[in-house]
Simulated assay, not measured.
Amino acid sequence: MQTITRIALYVFLAALTLGVSARDLSQDEALRLREQGRIIPLEKLLELVAQRHPHASLLELELEEDDDIYIYEVELATRDGVVRELEFDAHTGKLLKDEEDD
């Protein structure tokens, strides 16, 4: 029984560590990265979102750094009322994820 408890504790700690690895960036950091050409402009990101989901309403937008990779995380509501979560590589604009949000 102690072995199972110890394994569960290790799994929990590993999951906690993984969850902490991504961090949200401030507006000042995002502006600096944009000026350096390290991330695409917000206007370009919104064009990519609109191409994929026309007429959707933007609910939330975050710029995160995870293991030195910048990711735009976008949450939107489609015309049908479905909430979707999209992730884009903030440097290239490549779509990384597009799925229905729970």
Rank of each mutant, 00 (worst) to 15 (best):
V82S: 10
R34C: 06
G93L: 06
I71T: 01
A56N: 13
L63H: 02
Y72E: 01
L45T: 10
I7G: 07
V74N: 02
D80Q: 10
D66M: 01
A56G: 13
L25M: 05
Q36W: 14
A22R: 00
A50H: 12
L46S: 12
V11S: 10
Y72W: 04
R84H: 05
L95S: 08
V11Y: 12
E85H: 05
H55I: 05
L59P: 01
A22Y: 03
L58G: 08
V49P: 09
F88V: 05
Q51F: 06
L25R: 03
R52A: 11
L18W: 09
D67G: 00
T17L: 09
E100A: 14
A50R: 14
R6T: 15
V74H: 01
A56Y: 08
V49I: 13
T92M: 04
L61Y: 06
A77G: 06
L59E: 09
V82A: 07
R84N: 08
D24T: 07
Y10V: 05
D66R: 01
A90D: 02
R79Q: 08
D80N: 04
A22T: 03
T3Y: 13
A8D: 11
A90I: 04
E100F: 13
L46M: 15
Q36D: 15
A77M: 05
K94T: 12
R79D: 09
V11I: 15
R6Q: 14
D101C: 09
L31P: 09
L9Q: 11
L16E: 08
V74G: 03
Q2V: 15
L76W: 01
E43K: 10
L9K: 10
S21T: 13
L48F: 10
S21P: 01
D67L: 00
Y70G: 01
D67K: 00
E85S: 04
L45Y: 14
T17I: 09
D80T: 06
S57N: 06
L33Q: 07
L18S: 05
D66L: 00
D24F: 01
D89L: 03
Q2M: 13
A90C: 04
Q51L: 08
I7R: 12
A56L: 05
D89Y: 02
D66N: 03
D28G: 11
A50S: 14
D102T: 12
K44E: 15
Y70S: 00
K94N: 12
L25G: 05
E75I: 00
I69C: 02
T3A: 14
I39Q: 12
V83Y: 06
V49N: 12
S26N: 08
E99I: 05
T17S: 14
Q36Y: 12
L58K: 02
G37A: 06
L95W: 09
L86K: 01
L58M: 11
R34A: 14
H53G: 07
L48P: 13
E75A: 01
E99W: 10
L96C: 09
M1G: 15
Q51N: 13
H55P: 07
H91K: 04
V83H: 03
E64F: 02
E62H: 08
D66Y: 03
E87K: 04
L76I: 01
L86P: 01
R23E: 09
L31Q: 15
V82F: 06
T3L: 14
L45W: 11
T3F: 14
L9W: 10
I40E: 14
T17H: 12
I4A: 11
F88P: 06
